[in-house]
């Protein structure tokens, strides 16, 4: 069983490399990091010349904000990759007839799902780590900005992209490529809007808006992971200045991490079951 899963994962990685998908993603990521580092360099130059905030803490808040913005962009690019890279891996192969040849081999259909999940997870996870690592290294090197709890925050961001990847693969077991893409991006959109509404509700003290935001986070627990990561990344001194950057003052509960994890595992289990039962 494990051998066939690894064989499918290997094919997924091999195909991504041969189709230059990885190369294109790396080039886009490199361009993003170059732009981010340049912007940070210029901003830090202005601060060093005495323009902008004068106190050390205010400068740290500004630099942390810029770094978090960079991390948010890195997470967004990785989320798009997590949704779009596997969006046609099942539906496309079913339509083209590739899947019939694969599924007629002496392997479980679940092995195909798990193999593809592992292959795509390696690509998307590596991409996220490279981008976020680049942002953190750039901000440290250019501006000396310091963020804390990096392993925990990276794990949360990784969970976010893996959840999106799982949704995209699960959708492919039943939906056409375009419908699946719309559905998976919609899932991400619900989380984004839900997080925004929850923050506005928290800042404005509007309980109903906060409740709607939490409900949206339960339906799509991706943005909540980012907000928790952003909160954890900020040093105490920055958090104490006022409302937290990207977490607005509504710090998500740690229980949401377990909810997201369970959500991902159940979705993957459903994908396996759904694919086992569908006609090819």
């Amino acid at each position: 069983m494990m051998r066939s899963i690894l064989t499918i994962a290997h094919l997924t990685l091999y195909e991504a490399r041969r189709r230059r998908i990885v190369l294109a993603a790396i080039l886009c990521g490199a361009a993003f990091l170059a732009i981010f580092s340049t912007a940070l360099f210029l901003a830090y130059g202005e601060l060093a010349r005495g323009d902008g905030p004068s106190s050390f803490i205010e400068r740290q808040v500004l630099l942390a904000g810029l770094t978090l913005a960079g991390l948010y962009a890195a997470g967004f690019l990785s989320a798009l990759l997590a949704v779009l890279l596997p969006v046609d891996t099942l539906s496309g192969e079913i339509d083209s007839g590739v899947m019939q040849t694969l599924a007629s081999k002496p392997i479980r259909r679940g092995d195909i799902i798990l193999g593809k999940w592992i292959g795509h997870a390696v690509i998307v996870g590596t991409y996220l780590i490279l981008l976020t690592g680049g942002v953190l290294a750039g901000s440290r090197w250019v501006a000396g900005a310091v963020l804390v709890n990096l392993p925990e925050a990276m794990a949360l961001m990784l969970l976010e992209v893996l959840l999106l990847l799982t949704i995209s693969i699960a959708g492919g077991t039943r939906l056409s490529t375009v419908t699946n893409g719309v559905m998976a991006l919609g899932f991400y959109g619900i989380a984004f809007v839900g997080g925004f509404v929850e923050q506005v509700g928290s800042l404005g003290g509007v309980q109903s808006a906060k409740a709607v935001g939490i409900l949206a986070s339960l339906l799509s627990p991706t943005d909540v992971l980012w907000r928790l990561a952003a909160y954890r990344l900020q040093p105490e001194v920055v958090r104490n200045v006022g409302s937290q950057i990207f977490s607005g003052g509504a710090v998500p509960s740690s229980l949401m991490v377990w909810w997201a994890l369970g959500f991902g595992v159940l979705t993957l289990a459903w994908a396996v079951r759904s694919f086992e039962r569908r006609a090819l």
Binding site: L11, E15, R18, S96, V98, T101, S104, K105, P106, I107
Partner: peptide, 29 residues
Amino acid sequence: RARIGFLPEHFRFHDCLTARELLRFHGRL
């Protein structure tokens, strides 16, 4: 299924693979 071979109508596979790679991959399965 280990004792069965199947050629579908209009056979297609990942077009970035060579025929040798295609056969190696299926052999592993």
